Simulated scan of single mutants.
Amino acid sequence: MRRLVGRNFARVRQERGLTQEKVAEISGFSQQYISGLERGHRNPTVVTLFELAQAIGVAPIELLTSD
């Protein structure tokens, strides 16, 4: 699940032309946290998923579903 969320987050972030640094600025999470999330090393809470999804402009479910 961590890898799925990380892959989805990275894909959407890149599709929207956002850098990890910009998402960090918008969301309040560190760039290191976002990097770890995208690599599947972080296990985000439901609240964190919601906040990160808002930062990149998607519904949280989009980070949880496989293609």
Rank of each mutant, 00 (worst) to 15 (best):
F9A: 08
V46K: 01
A10R: 15
S66F: 06
Q54I: 08
Q14D: 12
T48Y: 10
V5K: 05
Q14C: 09
G28Y: 06
F29Q: 06
I34V: 08
A24Q: 00
A24D: 02
R3I: 15
R7T: 15
R42M: 04
Q31M: 03
D67E: 14
E25N: 07
I56R: 07
A10C: 14
R2M: 11
Q14Y: 01
A24C: 02
G57E: 08
G57A: 06
M1R: 07
P60M: 03
L63C: 12
S35Q: 11
R11W: 01
S66G: 12
P44W: 10
L49G: 10
N43S: 08
A10F: 10
A55E: 11
E21S: 13
G40V: 05
R3Y: 14
R42T: 13
L37R: 03
L64H: 00
Q31V: 13
G57Y: 09
N8P: 15
D67Q: 15
L4T: 13
G6R: 11
E51V: 14
A53W: 01
P60V: 11
V23T: 13
L18A: 04
G40K: 01
E25T: 02
Q14K: 12
L64C: 09
I34M: 00
V46Q: 06
V12M: 01
L49D: 10
E15V: 11
I61V: 15
A59W: 10
L52H: 06
L52D: 02
T19R: 04
L37A: 04
R13Y: 13
S30E: 00
F9W: 09
